[in-house]
Simulated assay, not measured.
Amino acid sequence: MFKGLGGIGDMAKMMKAAQEMQTKMAELQETLARTVVVGEAGAGLVKARCTAKGEITGLEIDPSILVPSEKEVVEDLIVAALADAQAKAAAKGQQEMARLTEGLGLPPDFKLPF
């Protein structure tokens, strides 16, 4: 009469696992927001800091390169440092996501949205 009720327990397990994953994802988001990576350009003359979520939080420029005639070089170094910081942030985010999902049996290259 109630043959299909065995699936309710499985559904409850799936819902609990989904809630646990949601909690872990929220914790990961907080961790990524607190994790800072530093990108560099020009052998460290320009450094950009950003969170592992990709939010730029700071920029350091060595005063020795602040010469008006070198304006374009400085601009290029800033862009390169920002790109480096964002690439490192993305890599850190992927690394943390892989660590979180490794027990789920998902393929290694499976991408979950942030």
Rank of each mutant, 00 (worst) to 15 (best):
M1N: 12
L32Y: 13
M97W: 15
V46Q: 08
L28I: 10
I61Q: 00
D109Q: 08
K47M: 12
Q94F: 06
G7R: 02
K16W: 02
P107L: 02
G42H: 05
I8C: 08
A41I: 10
G4T: 10
F110A: 09
V38N: 03
K3F: 14
L82F: 05
A83W: 04
E96Q: 06
A89C: 10
G9V: 06
E70V: 09
A83T: 02
L28Q: 04
T51P: 11
V38A: 10
Q95P: 05
I56K: 01
M11W: 05
L106F: 15
P113F: 13
P108N: 00
R99A: 14
P113N: 04
M97S: 13
T23F: 15
I8K: 11
T35L: 06
I61H: 03
S64C: 07
G39H: 00
A87Y: 01
L82S: 02
P68K: 09
G4C: 00
M15D: 07
Q22G: 12
E40M: 12
L59T: 10
M15N: 09
S69Y: 01
E20W: 00
Q19L: 07
E20S: 07
M21S: 08
A41R: 01
K88W: 04
E75R: 03
D76M: 12
M15Y: 11
G42L: 03
A52G: 10
D109I: 06
E30Q: 04
V46P: 09
Q94Y: 03
I65F: 01
Q86Y: 07
R49H: 14
E20H: 01
K24G: 07
Q29V: 07
T51R: 04
G7K: 01
L112R: 01
L112H: 08
F114I: 04
T23N: 06
V36L: 07
L112S: 02
G93M: 11
P107D: 13
C50N: 04
F2Q: 14
A26I: 06
L66H: 03
D109E: 14
E70W: 00
V37G: 00
E60H: 07
M15L: 12
E72L: 12
A81E: 05
E30C: 01
P108Y: 06
E75V: 10
G44Y: 01
P68M: 11
